[in-house]
Design a protein around this nucleic acid. Structure first.
Lengths: 155, 155
DNA sequence: TCTTTAGTTCATAATTTTGTGAACTAAAAA
DNA sequence: TTTTTAGTTCACAAAATTATGAACTAAAGA
């Protein structure tokens, strides 16, 4: 069975903490770390369990979460019941788009604020809020173009 | 003392949940919501405590966190010991920059992964990882320019 | 048919996060 | 000097999140 060097273990934790900080469950975050770091491009359920020293249920839980959120995927081989898990990095563009959606989605809440303030007839200055709304709108338009621009720059 | 309408209360919660989802502590997230929604442009410690129905310690904790992370600020008035808290929306550009830094900061971890893989002499395909690194680099360069472009478009 | 494999599920335990209220502080007011 | 105001601090409680291990399932192999 594959084993991790100390350096690899440390990096798994580092990447784990990064994802944890971004709101991911600890075990799932370590699985991400492991799949990034592992020299083997794909790992089985049991390998993940053993390399991370977590219980089978923790692994099951983490893996299902990551599959559901589109961050990992698996392949199988004929005559082998194991699933081989790997990062779905092909999809990083998708992931980026999702992040943009969330960020610019705050716009909707800000509009509600502005609407409500109008109703309540308050006389306070809303120009800064309007500025943020405008910027989020701008981002929403421009970020996809930016991705395209990058894609062209690579060909 | 100011009181919130049902609509306002609902929106405070909505904005609260948005910030909570983004990793903020619940109470702090409600304070953000309140300061966005409140028709009064600034609120005192006690107003926050009463409007949100939380304890003084929860308010103290939340406020200090938000001040520390540069998301709110306060003003005072001569002959009045109270602090009047408000959003530091002037700083939203700063906040945006911070978010970019965090996101593109993942690049550093990815480089470590690539470095380690080279050391371990693995033969697996790293091209997708390199692609992500390249894109994060591109973003790091381009996003500040994008902000500038938006600023010009507004004048 | 019996066993093994590759997981899943669930009750419960451990840990972490968050909130509370009472006691405290430091400055201003009376 | 005593009291009030505007908070802060801290020990503890409540709640939410995670992890565990034992029991289970469903398919494949012997």
């Amino acid at each position: 069975m594959a084993i991790l060097t100390e350096k690899q273990k440390a990096l798994v934790e580092k990447i784990g903490i990064f994802h944890e900080t971004a709101g991911m469950q600890p075990a799932a975050a370590r699985v991400m770390g492991l799949l990034f770091v592992s020299s083997t491009p794909q790992l089985t359920f049991d390998e993940i369990t053993e390399l991370l020293q977590i219980s089978k249920s923790a692994t099951s839980n983490a893996i299902n979460l990551l599959i559901q959120t589109g961050q990992i995927e698996y392949t199988t081989f004929p005559g082998d019941r194991k699933r081989y898990f790997k990062l779905k990095i092909k999809n990083w563009r998708e992931g980026f788009k999702k992040k943009i959606e969330v960020m610019t989605g705050f716009q909707v809440l800000l509009r509600e604020v502005l609407e409500l303030r109008k109703e309540e007839n308050t006389h306070c200055d809303c120009s800064k809020l309007e500025e943020v709304v405008s910027f989020l709108e701008f981002l929403h338009q421009e970020l996809p173009k930016l991705v395209e621009r990058w894609e062209k720059s690579r060909t």
